[in-house]
Write a protein that binds this DNA or RNA. Sequence first.
DNA 1: GTGGTCTAGACCACA
DNA 2: GTGGTCTAGACCACG
Lengths: 133, 133, 133, 133
Amino acid sequence: MILRIDPRAAEPLYEQVVFAVKNAVAKGTAKAGDRLPSVRELARDLAINPNTVVRAYELLEREGVIVRRQGAGCFLTGHHSHLSTHERRKQLHDLLARAVTEAFHLGFQAADIEKVMAACLEEVSFPERKEHS
Amino acid sequence: MILRIDPRAAEPLYEQVVFAVKNAVAKGTAKAGDRLPSVRELARDLAINPNTVVRAYELLEREGVIVRRQGAGCFLTGHHSHLSTHERRKQLHDLLARAVTEAFHLGFQAADIEKVMAACLEEVSFPERKEHS
Amino acid sequence: MILRIDPRAAEPLYEQVVFAVKNAVAKGTAKAGDRLPSVRELARDLAINPNTVVRAYELLEREGVIVRRQGAGCFLTGHHSHLSTHERRKQLHDLLARAVTEAFHLGFQAADIEKVMAACLEEVSFPERKEHS
Amino acid sequence: MILRIDPRAAEPLYEQVVFAVKNAVAKGTAKAGDRLPSVRELARDLAINPNTVVRAYELLEREGVIVRRQGAGCFLTGHHSHLSTHERRKQLHDLLARAVTEAFHLGFQAADIEKVMAACLEEVSFPERKEHS
DNA sequence: GTGGTCTAGACCACA
DNA sequence: GTGGTCTAGACCACG
């Protein structure tokens, strides 16, 4: 798994690492069971402080994206959020409502937004779902 | 204009104020030329420090959403981003790609996301656009 | 004399008025002896507070650009700064050094700056000077 | 990097700090990648409040002159303005036109201004540019 | 009355 | 150690 961060971005490094991992999963370039780089390895590769990686992994574990097995390393769980359906729907709405408001202030129309949104959805490999027929 | 913030949320107070204003504009409850509450007034209403409001207003001015006029007050400009088209498109894509990744990890499918997205778009009053025919 | 200000600009209104008058003199659209609009008249024309005009006129009088004659109005003196030669040279250098630094950060080269500078100098009607021959 | 401000000047302290940094870059005494003094350190050196330094650094970051990285410090980017070419040219003209008008009222002739301008341009280390030949 | 600047000092987040 | 956020309170500039 290759992760990239931008040390010059305003976003904290640990958040960038968290998102990079989540993104790799969503894009399908990493999947359940895959082992993440060790803390020291990733810190060296990204040229950042090991503590920053530790913090990112802690967050990922708390969200259920990875599990840390003592001595063996960190592994992707393939699980999704363990929150209640209600809470998940609320977060989804907040997430999208915020994105829409920001897009509005960037000067886009609903049609522009839907088009780009569709493109973004294409890039994600959603888990298969039982279909009728 | 009525603005609400949640002092217990992790998001900084000034960012909540910034978003609340942007949201009011997107929702159409406030429009170009409208005057915002004065710094002191809003600080009193939200029970936060005036300097926190000042900071939010500074950010909004920086983004071109409002203008601050000494002795007169703060006013909505009705402008959108002044960034280049290329930069705006990039930001839109980043914005939506991130939202999609987060939604993926919340356990939603593409169809769910598109449905909620459509609902969010409905709530925003986009400027009218010349149509052919 | 026609003066224009931009109420939406960040620069204080009274400074804009001061500069507009100075600019009219420099451009040659107003000359020594000309009478300025009355405070009330200008305030009405610019749609600003009369106190703001009063303040601008006070500043202009302090700098020696205008004289206020009780009951008659304000008149352009045609005089320049009454500061010492040394102080004037210092101010000129500061003025230009600052402009150059800002131009540098706008991404311009020395040649660009000199070219635009020459154009700006063309627009100003400097007083005639005794020439040799 | 040594920065100096004048606490008795009319110009706000934070603006003086902003200009001092820009000037150091223009003069070539500081270059891309250099780290600025920490907020606390500069505040102590200049005998001003740390918040005033924070404000100056925020402005510099907004203009793209520096990046601030939490826990790491503030660094010069070496970038110039990110505005559109058109906007940059407009700002350059305004900048110089204003300087010329002020110089006019200080009582200088075009020749004086050009001479001092040339001297100011000499003091700035413009980035090298590919020459033909 | 409005916003603009500055100080003083607290506590948190980050590397 | 760094920067980020927030509070409290002062005084000035502006309309």
